[in-house]
Nucleic acid binder design. Structure first.
Lengths: 100, 100
DNA sequence: CATTCATATGAACGTTGGTTTATGTTGTCT
DNA sequence: AGACAACATAAACCAACGTTCATATGAATG
């Protein structure tokens, strides 16, 4: 019931990542765009469940989609992908880097 | 009910931060150790509720406590505090930086 | 030692959120 | 057009989580 006019708080974006499946999706997409079927195989998640989580990522603006025939290709949103070198994602409010 | 022998997953640590109150506590503690009473005033959170959230942060190992008379002082755990300059926290599995 | 201050704990409640099952939609191929 | 493949959506269920209220603990002070 979040008002679409008010900007998403940092907490809400963290909530999106605070799920095993969604975090795995994001980390997997850091390697490049991927089709849903590939994500299913790599993450061992049921189709419907994965689709639900992808919807959350979409609505949070963390990922974008593109059709490729029957398949749908998911990729990290442009603003999310940060510096070329690091394994990091940009949430706008904060940055997450996975390189210790 | 997490088995204490197995290491905490990155997701679990993110879950801890994915709450408005707890994130506010951590951000507030980045400025230095603080007593519970001070956190109550600054964050406008009821005593009991704050205490519950502090417990979650404690059990996650993100904060440490120290007695100061009747009061209890909370501070970020040593490994959490990262580089001197940046407003960043280290979760072990990943780093969160709040400087765009 | 009784009281008060500062914080923690326990239980009960309501809501959110992840999972499952079933069905719908969109595209492709023959 | 029919059939299949790839993915999305809807509804229902259950568990986890945040919140509240009541009570307990521990330290200090008279």
């Amino acid at each position: 019931m979040a008002n679409s006019t008010e900007p998403t708080a940092c907490v809400d974006r963290l909530k999106v990542l605070a799920d095993a499946t969604r975090l795995a999706v994001v980390e997997s997409l850091m390697a490049g765009p991927q089709r849903v079927g590939v994500l299913m195989d790599r993450l061992h998640v049921e189709q419907s469940l994965l689709s639900h989580h992808l919807k959350v990522l979409r609505e949070a603006g963390l990922v974008d989609t593109e059709r490729d025939g029957k398949a749908v290709v998911y990729r990290l949103a442009d603003y999310v992908k940060t510096d070329s070198a690091g394994q990091a994602i940009n949430l706008g409010c904060c940055r997450l880097s996975f390189t210790p």
